[in-house]
Design a binder for these strands. Structure first.
Lengths: 132, 132
DNA sequence: GCTTGACCCTGTAGTTGCTACAGGGTGTAG
DNA sequence: CTACACCCTGTAGCAACTACAGGGTCAAGC
């Protein structure tokens, strides 16, 4: 399959596929006589994995780690679990922060409707907390 | 307080603080006789806010707008309302996205049987699926 | 009083994760 | 046979930092 087809099949930009190859996330495929990249199903699977992990918010470095781990079938699952778990904790913190910010914005909007410009406490909402 | 102290208090790099000043997010502080930047508590609060907001995925431009909300006390109610409303929508979208992501990651983690990679459900989940 | 080391200054170049050209070659449909 | 969509390499740009290089400042210790 040509690069355009691979890209379309994974909703990736052609340039991004070449970029992944350049940084070593995707192995260089065979070339046709006219020097076009020729991909197989293994490439398709790997790129799908990369895109999906990226979608889930993993950095390229984390993806690289996950790929290395998944290549070594005999290894234990714990490292994979660890990477995902750290990521999950981060997400939980972000949701909590966003919810606090949302409440404050909502309050600002509410006071607006009553014709008064309440002093906006946005800065205080995300002010440093002791637990951090 | 000196730039290093401010940076440490907000887990920011010194260079980043200077960068925020350069792009106008942080007002230029007073200088000591030896030309060192001298910050007060208002800078600390503002920088804390910027860092948290950035962490939550707001662009610097969005942060800039949020800050004008809390800065400009004389602003018209409509302007405040407009800016707040846009960001409220954005926050709701982010919370929804993160929650979906969380659910998925949680499901993936729950399936981890701590066996070997060969049977790792996390890797399997990220692998390409027919329905995609 | 002088050196050592941790800090500060400005300015510029590199990073991440792409994305967008520029300037060219290839392949097929009309 | 020429138009057009696709492919190639290479470089430059984007946001938002981050890391030097090359220099100045200051408190502590000998």
């Amino acid at each position: 399959m040509k690069i355009g087809e691979l890209a379309a099949a994974t909703t990736t930009k052609v340039e991004t596929v070449r970029y992944y190859e350049k940084i070593g996330l995707l192995s260089p495929p065979a070339r046709t006589s006219s020097n076009y990249r020729a991909y197989g199903n293994d490439h398709l699977a790997r790129l799908s994995f990369i895109r999906r992990a990226r979608d889930l918010g993993f950095t390229l470095e984390a993806v690289r780690e996950l790929l290395t781990l998944s290549d070594d079938k005999a290894q234990s699952c714990e490292a994979v679990d660890g990477i995902a778990r750290v990521h999950l904790t981060e997400i939980d913190r972000k949701v909590a922060d966003l919810t606090a910010l949302r409440t404050e914005l909502d309050r600002v909007l509410g006071s607006c409707r009553h014709g008064t410009i309440a002093s906006c406490k946005i800065i205080e909402t995300l002010a440093p907390r002791k637990g951090l």
